[in-house]
Nucleic acid binder design. Structure first.
Lengths: 333, 333
DNA sequence: CTGTTAGCGCATTCAC
DNA sequence: GTGAATGCGCTAACAG
């Protein structure tokens, strides 16, 4: 006997399964006496109705899924935390899965959630038109994209105004004093492209001779790339300002530079983007642009739940407002 | 029409649902010609069989759940990352849920996973004999406890040898130079009790006059408590060594002390416990005891999966070996 | 108030 | 090779 079922409870209570079912879902329709009896049996066996059966029988599921790229990147943790707060408050259940930056894992995760007929899905997609999103569109399951915008008129999303964030950083960087500017775009993710664009559009590229250096997604990547950068760009001798398009990577860079004896912000000023929690507590508190990640999560979750409960197809496209956070990693000397 | 079903595919293909079912689960039992046909229809509609129905019909579920206390604490992230690596490799799917330190939410999460008939569950419980564990025992679902040991002969767990970790820290602290020792136990969680006990058993409590100060679970808690501690223990004038039983809290303490102008490790040496990822990259790299969290996760996941796939009830009780990590936060001056 | 019946979508015997 | 029948555990009409 694997799991005890509603029939077991019914027999033991000497009633029909309908009655047991009622006791669980609409207790007031049952005579107090029998209700108490049934409840005692349920309790005795710690009976928990199967969500599989309930779902099949037509009860709406009460769980929502969230697919992230990577657990260690605190960006997603903060997001999950925000989402969790509203999901839970509204009596739903949040399940998180990670795709480790593999588009095919991302797709697998989404498939898995669709397969289990999740009530709704939140996805921070690798790209606005990746396979996972395509699949989602055909799935009939409500979903909201996070950290990604799309022109598709049927898709809701919540993201930060990354272009504006890039602009904010550019305006700030202009006030700093340095001999060379290095931009580390980190990846070709849409959000990154936006923020780099916003940055470049508002800085005098010719005069500042920004240098582009690319491709790094994790803390480790930043750590490793820092060494070669130090040599390539003579960071030890040339006063440099570095804009890394992602805090997590930026922190990797900072840690490595410090290990190499390069001082921050004196020799190299480093700025990031995201304002994840650890940015304020890392080796050198990081100047960055806040995306209000926690709020992004909350808002997306609200939209999704409204969609589910009110069964409305209204699409919402929301951009959170970026805020510049100046900390020690770029303080003027 | 909510979701398309196996019947839809069957009709459109002009075959019976049995055939469609075979195409999916045992393709070689179907004539190549019809198989291709059916597959094309499946593809055309992006048909994904319902895990609810499959589960009900007796197919074993391929998902495993993990319940953590809190997302922002990197300890659980590292754990999840380790778990994820083996779960995925073995074609299972990992779903993470958080309980935000509420025992009743912990219970709810476990209920939710049992309800959905998850194949297996990993739980980092608030206590070895909390309600969630009790429920799990009656659920017939294989599970492994993480970060917790129990005498119960039927329960498998993977935890760190926290007592030994406390001893390691004590031996190290003895070599340091300070006027007072402050112990911040953080919580009454079993792991914490163990490590504090290991610490106290191996240090001369009388001579060192350790001071006990309690109850803090998060970064914020550490941050807030640091201020009052500074006054209570005259941290500005008395050379102090502080053992905080949890890295995340320790980092909060460090950040606040620095803000107050107290130098680390010169005026106050701080040691933590856990060796979460950010410990090496925080304001002052933290001396701590490594629990090899990532491995804990991997091992627990292996045990659980073996249990599920081989259907064996063998219980495994595993303690990982702690390792002292000396970093700048306590470097001798 | 309570029991009976009929699916929900699928896998799995069995026949053919 | 393939189709028809049965049941998984539960909810939702429908009768009593």
């Amino acid at each position: 006997m694997k799991h005890i079922t509603i029939d077991d409870i019914a027999k033991e209570s000497g009633v029909s399964k309908s009655t047991v079912s009622r006791v669980i879902s609409r207790p007031n329709l049952v005579k107090e006496e029998t209700r108490e009896l049934v409840l005692s049996i349920i309790d005795k066996y710690s009976y928990i109705p199967s969500a599989l059966a309930q779902g099949l029988a037509g009860l709406p599921m009460k769980n929502i899924g969230f697919v992230v790229d990577e657990f260690p990147n605190n960006f997603y943790i903060d997001l999950a935390d925000g989402i969790d707060s509203v999901i839970t408050a509204r009596k739903y259940t949040l399940q998180v899965m990670s795709s480790l930056w593999h588009p095919d894992r991302e797709l697998q995760n989404i498939r898995s959630m669709i397969k289990s007929r999740t009530a709704g899905i939140l996805l921070s997609p690798s790209s606005p038109d990746c396979e996972a999103v395509e699949l989602l569109k055909q799935s009939n399951i409500p979903f909201v994209l996070l950290n990604c915008r799309t022109e598709d008129p049927e898709i809701s999303y919540v993201s930060c105004d990354n272009y504006e964030g890039g602009r904010l950083m550019a305006e700030y960087v202009k006030t700093l004093d340095f001999q060379q500017l290095v931009i580390l775009p980190v990846s070709d993710h849409q959000t990154v492209v936006d923020r780099i664009e916003g940055f470049e559009d508002h800085i005098d590229m010719k005069a500042l001779r920004p240098i582009l250096y690319s491709n790094a997604k994790t803390y480790q990547d930043g750590y490793h790339i820092a060494q070669s950068m130090a040599e390539t760009y003579s960071l030890k001798t040339k006063k440099t300002c570095m804009f890394v398009a992602n805090d997590y990577v930026a922190i990797g860079v900072i840690v490595k530079l410090l290990e190499m004896g390069i001082t921050i912000p004196d020799q190299v000023a480093v700025a990031g983007f995201d304002d994840i929690r650890i940015s304020a507590m890392c080796r050198v508190p990081l100047t960055t642009v806040s995306q209000s990640v926690y709020d992004m999560g909350r808002i997306a979750a609200e939209i999704l739940l409204d969609n589910i409960t009110q069964n409305k197809t209204e699409v919402v496209k929301h951009l959170t407002e970026p805020r510049l956070m100046v900390r020690e990693s770029t303080k003027k000397t």
